[in-house]
Design a binder for these strands. Structure first.
Lengths: 234, 234
DNA sequence: CGATTCTTTGATGGGCTTCAAAACGTGTGG
DNA sequence: CCACACGTTTTGAAGCCCATCAAAGAATCG
């Protein structure tokens, strides 16, 4: 959040207190299961997680990948039962907090609440991008968009990442995120490679022609182009 | 918002002031255009609107239908340029307000801000439902889900609506919302009719077997099952 | 009442799925 | 450290769902 605006020391200590408790989560572990009573919310400190839903034919739709700094389970906060499952894709560290803490922040820190809202809106717009991708773009474009999004999000917490990065996902998972089968994801990756847009080696992906990739994917980085000048005073 | 909790007179007057200015919008008119600098936000008072994006092959993805009581353009508030277009599907009345007013509410009315956040989260979950529908369900299921959602949302502001309602959308629009072609939407409506799930007459749709329709559509009403006990005090 | 938009139906084709199986990694226990 | 089991990646073949193209009715509007 400190990347959006300069925080006051008061705000900073409030957030530090919010994140004071920490919990380790193993790869594959589930933090919250769909349709079960929802307990806490979390801030992801380290690692990669995802949220997904299971349809009753057994298929899975990955709704979102979660990166360090993201808030998890905010939507669950307002429902009696969780609308989505939260699971760890790598070993993770999370900081749990409860609804009371959220209510406390909203009462005492208007600017922090506004920034939480800003985060929620960024996430919402990213969701609409994916909605448009699933509804109206080709398999190749969806896979390309996922690669770009993943690289950009990973780079936020690891500045060393440039055009090469570890995918960290199976092709099955890429398929569940893009609405495709693992088989077809494989073919699309192959095509992107043949087209000279990406390269692959030992589980690492290289974005060879990022410009062309973004064009093919209709991709917009939603963490740019913000206007936060209107935020309430600290 | 008064349907979520009992508002205090202070909160009520704040919201009334927010909605004091009113503007008429003709059917087909555009309130906000994608990629243009965003001005105001709005509360929809009357009528039916939609938000959509255009992809560069000219295809359209309708992101959301907007009903009385909904806030429009909240996502635009945080960007310099609007990420989506807002257009009226029927003659509408909207109440415009600016970012300053939003910041003012967040400072002076913690509970109202929390309720705005609740609204945003409901909308987010509804979006993820549609994401899962586009990614993992059949054309028939998507059309069925749209019919159920539309009926339920319309009923909120018009209690007289039961199982019969005016669609208010062209099949082209249904297609742009569900990621299908108008031609295929037509076939799916026909199939739903042949299956005895719906009936159609003079532009009106009847949900004949709502239970079966919800099952076919994997549909969950996200305006139910809320837990708002944690909201900050008024 | 003419014009335009919307709905409906048919025929054809393609993108993606499904099914199947081999090659490749990767972690685990002996 | 090897052997085995299991998950993942890769490739092929066949088929289906939905798109595309086309055109005729129906409805709506000026």
């Amino acid at each position: 959040m400190s990347e959006l605006v300069e925080l006051t020391s008061d705000e900073r200590s409030t957030l530090e207190k919010l994140e004071s408790r920490q919990r380790q989560v193993r790869r594959g572990a589930v933090l919250q299961r769909e349709n079960e009573p929802c307990g806490e919310m979390f801030i992801l400190r380290k690692g990669l997680m995802m949220s997904y839903v299971l349809l009753d034919d057994g298929s899975r739709q990955i709704l979102r990948f979660l990166f360090p700094g993201d808030m998890l389970g905010m939507s669950s906060a307002i429902y009696r039962e969780a609308p989505e499952t939260l699971a760890a894709l790598s070993d993770c560290t999370v900081a749990p907090f409860d609804r009371t803490a959220l209510a406390g922040i909203m009462t005492a820190h208007p600017r922090l609440s506004a920034m939480i809202m800003v985060h929620a809106q960024i996430e919402r717009v990213a969701l609409t991008d994916r909605l448009a991708a699933l509804g109206r773009t080709s398999a190749k474009a969806r896979v390309a968009a996922l690669l770009l999004e993943l690289r950009n999000r990973l780079r936020v917490s690891d500045k060393s990442i440039a055009n090469v990065f570890a995918l960290g996902l199976t092709q099955e998972e890429v398929g569940d995120a893009t609405g495709l089968t693992a088989v077809h994801v494989n073919r699309m990756l192959r095509q992107l490679e043949e087209d000279g847009l990406i390269a692959r080696e030992a589980g690492k992906v290289t974005l060879v022609d990022e410009r062309a990739l973004a064009r093919a994917a209709n991709y917009v980085n939603r963490y740019e182009g913000l206007d936060l000048s209107w935020l309430p005073a600290a």
